[in-house]
Amino acid sequence: MKALLKQKEISILAIILLIGAVLSFVSPVFLTIGNFLDIIEGNVVIGILAIGMTLIIITSDIDVSVAALTTAVAVSIGYLFTFLPDSWISVLLLFLIAPVIGLVMGLINGLLVSIIEIPAIVVTLGTLNIIAGLVLYITNGNYVNSTNFPQSFMAFANYELLGLPILIYLLAVVAIGTWFILKHTLIGRSVLAIGGNTQSSVRVGIDYKKVKLFVFAYMGFLAGIAAIAQTAYTKAVDPNGMLGLELTVIAAVVLGGANIHGGRGSIHGTLLGVLLLAIMQNGMILARIDTYWQNVVTGAIIVIAVSYDHLSYKRSQDKLAKIEVEA
């Protein structure tokens, strides 16, 4: 029990409850089921991307190209709609094609990082610019084909199961699937091992490059799914709609207790991180705080949370006695 309380995830949960309590006083709307579902549905895309990012951050890398990647897949979806017949089969097909497009782009990132061994921040900055540039060239910065989305897709986007929007189920599937991979498969174990101690993982025969390739490819795969979610949620394809979203994604992962130096991170922690950011944003909107100030507050919370975490780590390191001093 004590170990459970010590977990970072619990302190995030506590902060969420605290902020929630404050907000329910500020606005009567906050503590309604409708508002809650809105918050979650509105953050499905960030949630899916953050889950992929968690694996990358556990291996002590980073991917800043995720938003551009997702946009690129979304734009592809927009053009695909002109080819695909209006039928539920097309929607299913979309769930095949979009992740594969994302996967291919993720593989490119992964190959550059693992085979040529370029630092991930450099690789993904590069692919971010290439992809974003190509997207703008192709679309001219205009919405793609958004006026005549197929009816079948609209039906999917608006579908509710047991009163919950379909996108929430999508997030749940991704979360549970990734948790399973991380916790119960060999590749997931290797991800944790590389993050915990890269040198040792090589010594015990873990193929370091394969694992790196996997996390970036998987990120691309999830970006494909996130692109479907984004298209379904906004019911439009906006080539500029996700500008800078990668920072929110990374912030959510870090807030969720993942260590940017690798080794630590969990799916439930990341989901809590996403929720925390989402509730803050929602609360500030309900409290009618100016958008610019919202950014400032969000940024400040991230810096404070991470500093607190790092300070408590340093303190615990300091406490470790180095020498058995004789009395």
Binding site: T185, L186, V204, G205, I206
Partner: peptide, 12 residues
Amino acid sequence: GQDSNKKPWKKI
């Protein structure tokens, strides 16, 4: 490392 020769998707 015991099962490093197994398929990566193998369940632990």
